[in-house]
Design a protein around this nucleic acid. Structure first.
Lengths: 248, 248
DNA sequence: CCTCCGGCTATTGTATACATAACGCATACA
DNA sequence: TGTATGCGTTATGTATACAATAGCCGGAGG
């Protein structure tokens, strides 16, 4: 190991590299992950690799094998839809907290801007792949901002964890390709949800804010089902990545 | 290190030992945790200790210091009450899942038995400290059984995480001592919630099952407030342990 | 031909040595 | 006297060596 990149810690480097391998599908669900192999592919030594493995296990991407070591966790379709509903429930609570605890107009501004930016994108019919890509990013931002407004560190932390499976991977486009026409309709409904939740928070209607976010999640579940039904060439393996998209 | 206990892994041993130290208050919130010191108190070497530290960080008991190392996380009263509400929301979802997906009478039996056992304990007026201790255990069992009935691995996992702060420590009794008379009344109301949720699951009334668990959590928050108001000698530091009790 | 036992290999769990970066203190200079 | 700089100590980050165990393969016996 002549040259080592010292700009980031070896642990973080290993964690990112392994996560990429998992989410990109290089490592298949159920496959045992070898420390030695991970050492080779990540360039870090065994200690940081082990730390990364522990973190990824806690993150939910890996599963400890009783006899030792880790394997890539496998998820069923129901696991995924449950995760979406779970996240929606948590975000509903966040919206309620935000509404009940009060949010100043100034604090609400970034959320509103984000909402308007999404509006612009959705005005395209049909939406282009590029716009859809931008949408995915903006939508993630919208949800993150909303979560922040709850001002509840424990809740924010938990939502982050619940988003850990979904979070990464730009490969959400697969869904867009498989179900574009209906997908846009769903996006538009989702955007309407976004509008309602902003309104509810502004007017301090906690129950309404919560309810709409939960409905939003149910829509996302329907979205996922649609995407899975329409897949032809699409493997279920990168379905992990789908959560991110479907949750939107 | 002449003699080492090989019955459990060093990592697990270190994790348990450190968790004990944190929850018992040996290590104060905000205090930096030294690896070397941890090595001495746990008897494990640095590698397992580090693994344990990472796990405890993911668990939420520790916080990473940017310049390196870990410190014991500090929690505000609101953090704690939010955690209770969070857990209640998750358990509400679990109850809904159980009700909607259907649970056979046979599967419901353990829950019912647990409920009846608690009934027996609460029949004592005033409740003894010993009975209260038994109650805490049984109640934890009730909530665990209920969670299981959701049959949703992602949700169960998340609830476990949300319970990570609370779980340990038998020191919930402090609350009982500080507010016994009112506490028992609250326990009885909580038991009524338990009854209703069993009934709702049996009759597949998802919305009702969810609602009652959330009400249960709100009761727990009131319970916590009561305990904190009544504390005289009680330090807020082991308040972490209180969550466990208050969530019940 | 199948099964069981024993040793071998590969992989993980643990310990420790080394490198490096942060913190504190003391000293010197403004 | 206050501040800044440099050195020393200490703690963490990383790498690697060692130990133990689990899984596998081959051979021998029924």
């Amino acid at each position: 190991m002549a040259e080592v990149d010292r700009s980031v810690s070896q642990t973080v480097k290993a964690q990112l590299a392994l996560r990429d391998q998992i989410l990109s599908g290089s490592l298949r669900p159920g496959e045992r992950i070898s420390e030695l192999q991970a050492v080779e592919t990540t360039g870090a030594s065994r200690t940081p690799v082990r730390m990364a493995l522990v973190r990824l296990e806690e993150e939910g991407l890996l599963e400890a094998i009783p006899s030792g070591g880790f394997m890539v966790k496998a998820f069923s379709e129901r696991d995924i839809s449950d995760s979406i509903e779970l996240r929606g429930t948590l975000e509903g609570l966040a919206a309620r907290f935000a509404a009940e605890r009060g949010v100043s107009a100034r604090e609400l501004e970034p959320l509103r801007e984000c909402h308007l930016a999404i509006d612009d994108l959705l005005r395209q019919v049909p939406i282009s792949i590029e716009a859809f890509s931008a949408y995915v990013t903006l939508n993630a931002r919208f949800h993150a901002l909303l979560t922040e407004l709850s001002r509840s560190p424990p809740l924010i932390r938990q939502i982050d964890r619940a988003s850990a499976l979904p979070f990464a991977s730009p490969s959400g486009f697969v869904m867009a390709q498989s179900a574009l026409p209906e997908a846009q309709q769903i996006l538009i409904i989702g955007q309407e949800h976004h509008r309602i939740v902003i309104d509810a928070i502004e007017n301090r209607e906690g129950a309404r804010a919560e309810a709409v976010m939960r409905e939003h999640a149910r829509l996302a579940v329907r979205n996922l089902r649609l995407a899975l039904r329409n897949r032809t060439h699409l493997d279920l393996l990168p379905a992990l990545a789908l959560i991110k998209t479907a949750t939107d």
